[in-house]
Every structure is written in C-alpha cells, then in structure tokens.
Design a protein around this nucleic acid. Structure first.
Lengths: 208, 208
DNA sequence: GTCTATAGTACGATAGAC
DNA sequence: GTCTATCGTACTATAGAC
C-alpha cells in the first residue's frame, strides 16, 4: 500500500493524471506535475506507461467499459421499460458523481485522443448510446413512452445526466439521491403541470 | 473585404482561432496555424491582439453577451410562461447551431481561461442561468410548470440544448426546426405516454 | 524501479527592418 | 501592418547510472 492509498505506483500515477487532466485539461497538464503528485520523477513514469497518451486512453477505456457493463446489467435485470429507464438514469448519475473526474475527462478530452485511439473510445461511447436507444425504442413499441426521435431523446438524456459531473459537489445542497429523483421526474414527466397525469410517483406527489 | 469574406484582418484572425480552438482545443491550437489560415505570419497577430489568451476571451465574451441579449429579448417580448419557455429553447438551440464552434469553445475551454478573466466569463454564464431560472420560477408560481428544483431544471435544460452544438450537422438528418420541436416536447412533456394529457401541441399530436 | 541529465522539439512572444 | 529572425521557455521522451 502506497502513502496515497493506491496499491501500486501504476495506480498512483493514473490517479494523479485523472486529477490533473480534469483540472487543467490533457494538454495543459505537464507530466512533471503528474509525477510530482505520484511521488516520483517524470522519467520514471515511462517505466509504467509508454507515453502520456497511454494515461488518457487507460482512463477513458476503463470507465467507459464500466459504464457499459453497468447499463447492460440494468437491461438484463429489469424488463419494465419505465423501471429500466429509472434504473438507467440512476446508474448514469451515480457513475458520473462517483467517478466525477474520470467522466469529466471522457466528456471533454475526446479531442486530445490521437486518431489511432479515438475510434476505439468512440465505439465504446456509441455502444452506450445504442444500449440506451434500445431501451427507449422498446419502451415506445410497448406503448410506455411517447413516440419520438430515439436518437434525440438518448442524446438529451445523456447530455443532461452527464453534465451533473460538472456541478455536483459531494457535500453540496443536494444528495446524489435527490439529484436522481429530480432528473427522473424531469425526464419522464417533463416540466408542464398537467392535470390528469396518472403516473405521478408517490414520492413527489406531496410537492403538489 | 478580405479573401475569406471577413471585413478586416482582425476578424480573419478571430475566425481562424474559432475554427482551430473548436477543432483541437485552445492549448493544442498553435498561433502559427491560426496565422497561416488568416494569411499572415504568427508575429503579425500581435499587432491585432496582445496575446493568445485575448483571442479566447474575445470569442467567449462576444457570444455569451449575444446569448444573454437574445434571452433578455425573449423575456421582454413574451409573458406566458409556456410560450417564454418555447421561445427560450428555440433561441438557445438556434444560437448553438448557428454559432456551433463558438459555443462549443465556451462549453469546453473554460479551464483554459487564466484566473483574471475567468470570473468575468463565468459571471456572464451565471447571468444566463439566472434569466432562465427566473423564467422557470415564474412559471411555477403561476401554476404552469410543475414545482421542482429550479436550479436542477435550468442545468438540465441548458445541458441538453447546449450539447446540440456537439452533434448537429447543418446538412444532417434533422433540420434545426425539427431539433427544436423535439427538444421542446421532451422538456415540456417528458418521455412518458400519459393518457389524459391536455396540453399536447397540435404540431405533434399526429405522432400519436 | 527510480534516479539525473539532457536530447529534441515546439511553442508564445519580442525585436527591429521595411 | 506585415515581415524575418530569434529569444526564452516548457514540454515529452530517451539514455544510461544505480
């Protein structure tokens, strides 16, 4: 066990990279600073990783894979479209608040990927979009969701739930669960106060 | 008039900066490349702008001001909360598709701002959020919108409508107007197919 | 596995001629 | 207002000792 709680120097380096890439951006984060936080010299990083780009790839690949696995699990676990959507939203927001910096990097540093690696990471992102679109399409076909453009709906949901990683503060005004509840209601029911809505969840009915 | 259609070298330089900042990111876009696109040498940029950072500031300030002015106009022009929201969404998406690269830079290069200038740009962004929150709060108090967390609702709307700038292609599958219509319905009515909804706009009723 | 030393390159910015 | 030439700096990455 290392002083920073990581179990290997390789992990310490990656953790430092996550922190600095998220704070300053990939190009503005010098390897010397990553090394200093990890407690070694810049040259020593090259014993663990072939170059700076490899750090970015490992961060993006690792967490996009985790995100996909977690959504696949939701789709396998549940069948009801509305419950699936509820769980997918909760899963997305939980992942993006728990691994805030990692997903912020995925969201903002796609341009920093060199061309050879970009296609791979984009394919992982496309896979996630496809899974969510499958969920939405199924819900529309089964008459639970309104007929609408599936791609636009998936982009909208992903954009709003991803951006939580930008402003969420673990000790802020709202808990993760409160954020999830608000987003669920907003996505499923919209903003309009519509008399006669029958799907109002009990947990929010008191607000009326 | 210059060969690129800009009316001054100052504008040509800024247009080149917009293009390269959006494509590669602020730190990865060399002044030499900006100069080449503008048709001059890198050193000549310094006759028009004091430094590279000034280019970023001018882009962000100009378009955040335009965005605020346009939303203020919507709030002055309309009174009905639902119509205000419709117009605000349309305005946001129109601005973000028309000035796609400029707003993409505002959205992704906040970290590249040096500390002295960051506060100013953030205050412009905060102003925009406050205007939208005022619209939402008013709509809730007047019983048109559901009671919900105004800040979360504003973040969600801004995030989803801003991200359009990332994927929208002028000659793509969907027109700007189709995107606006889809987003409006999604934001106002949500995904759920709820029997008994009374506020279904005529323009989308045929989808059912 | 980590170090020191440094190669090699690219960048932002300046000086000064025209 | 634009040029050429170049300064000073900072960065990624490598070489080679320990």
């Amino acid at each position: 066990m290392r002083p920073d709680g990581r179990s290997s120097m390789r992990e310490s380096i990656l953790a430092a990279a996550v922190h600095l890439f998220a704070q300053y951006g990939y190009h503005a984060a010098p390897l010397r600073d990553i090394a200093r936080i990890a407690g070694i010299q810049a040259a020593s990083i090259y014993h663990h990783y072939p170059n700076k780009q490899a750090l970015l790839i490992e961060i993006m690949e690792t967490y996009m894979l985790r995100l996909n696995v977690s959504l696949e699990h939701v789709l396998k676990e549940f069948d009801d479209p509305l419950q699936r959507l509820h769980e997918a939203i909760a899963n997305h927001i939980r992942m993006h608040t728990t691994y805030k910096e990692e997903f912020f990097i995925i969201d903002t540093e796609m341009r920093a990927l060199e061309e050879e690696h970009k296609a791979h990471i984009i394919s992982l992102r496309d896979k996630y979009e496809a899974l969510l679109q499958e969920l939405l399409q199924d819900g529309m076909e089964r008459g639970v969701f309104r007929q609408s453009d599936v791609k636009i709906a998936s982009y909208a949901i992903i954009a709003m739930c991803t951006e939580v990683a930008t402003w969420f503060r673990p000790n802020g005004r709202l808990s993760v669960q409160q954020v999830i509840t608000s987003y669920r209601q907003f996505i499923v029911e919209g903003l309009l106060l519509t008399p006669g809505v029958t799907h109002m969840p009990d947990e929010t009915a008191h607000l009326l």
